[in-house]
């Protein structure tokens, strides 16, 4: 979004303060009470030790919770998993989404709307429902994934698709890609459709067609849309919660935790509110950094 300061402004603020206040204040009140004050509360609370059951019994621990995080093996596992999910999501969702968008834009003539509608569909289904649907597909007893693997003679994992963390993290990625790739496709398709026909005509004269034209001409032209797509995917990857909550609950032995589920575990299962706040602050810093990146990149656009 462009912050445009050259707009003509024929209204003077001074004689319409009341209107401005009425229009602006509700948004500020809502965001302050439910986003900014809790954000400050997270930071303050991260320096204390307390639990839900002893709400009035706060104990100052300074940077103790942060020191604890650096020494907590599972915090690092959660952070690492978030980063794996970021990179895998960019490849699977933005990468495949770009290929699908390119095919729908210029690769095929028939059935564009049908394909687009089908591939976009999972976006409107809640992540909990998506997780539960995939749970039956991955199930070792009744799941079709096992059935398909067995029917073509391939081995199936002995602990099930979700029992071995080395495998289950990829099962989580496949499910996340199932839900989100269509969104990336539509986003990138909108960018592709803004590339004018003349560009392709000129490219064809220079001998660039098909994949070559896409790689050298189209991709650089939709660079900004791709950056937005990557940032949305990255932000989304740090918000991952439902898939892991439903599939593995962060287990076995915390091997599939991400920051979101680990904060939930520490706060609402173990009642380590102060410690949960410290991990939240780390998530907050990552989120604000990504938000700042998005802002600066869209200003350049």
């Amino acid at each position: 979004m462009d912050k445009n300061n050259t707009q003509t402004n024929s209204f003077s603020l001074s004689n319409d303060k009341v209107s401005v206040a009425i229009l602006l204040i509700p948004a500020l009140i809502f965001c302050t009470i439910f986003i900014f004050i809790p954000a400050i509360g997270t930071i303050v609370g991260s320096f204390y030790s307390y639990s839900l059951t002893s709400m009035n019994n706060w104990k100052w621990v300074g940077f103790g919770n942060y020191v604890k995080a650096t020494q907590d093996e599972y915090f690092w596992v959660a952070l690492k998993n978030n980063f794996i999910i970021v990179f895998a999501s960019i490849v699977l969702q933005v990468g495949v989404g770009t290929i699908l968008a390119a095919i729908l834009d210029r690769g095929i003539k028939h059935g564009k709307v049908i394909f687009r509608t089908i591939i976009f569909t999972p976006m409107v289904i809640s992540s909990v429902a998506v997780s539960l649907i995939w749970l039956i597909i991955y199930d070792p007893n009744v799941g079709i994934l096992n059935a398909i693997f067995k029917s073509i003679g391939l081995p199936t994992p002995s602990k099930g698709w979700l029992g071995d963390p080395n495998i289950s993290i990829w099962m989580i990625m496949i499910t996340a890609a199932w839900q989100n790739t269509g969104f990336m496709m539509v986003l990138i398709l909108a960018g592709l459709q803004s590339v004018s026909k003349e560009v392709y005509d000129a490219a064809e004269i220079d001998g660039a067609t098909g994949v070559k034209a896409f790689w050298y001409i189209t991709l650089p032209m939709i660079r900004n849309v791709l950056i937005v797509a990557i940032l949305i995917t990255t932000i989304g990857a740090f918000k991952v919660f439902e898939f892991i909550f439903v599939f593995t609950g962060g287990g076995p032995a915390n091997a599939t935790q991400v920051l979101g589920t680990y904060i939930y575990l520490q706060a609402f299962n173990l009642l380590h509110m102060g410690y949960a706040n410290a991990i939240s602050v780390i998530l907050l810093i990552i989120a604000l950094f990504l938000g700042w990146l998005q802002l600066t990149s869209s200003r350049k656009a």
Binding site: A27, L28, C31, I35, F36, I37, P38, A39, G41, T42, G45, I235, F238, K239, F241, L259, G260, I263, Y264, A267, M273, A276, N277, S280, V281, L283, L284, A287, L288, L290, G291, W292, Q294, L295
Partner: peptide
């Protein structure tokens, strides 16, 4: 402020 509010995920302010 609005952009910051957009970036902050609910998980980061869960406890307060």
């Amino acid at each position: 402020l609005i952009v910051a509010g957009f970036a902050i995920p609910p998980a980061a302010v869960l406890v307060p």
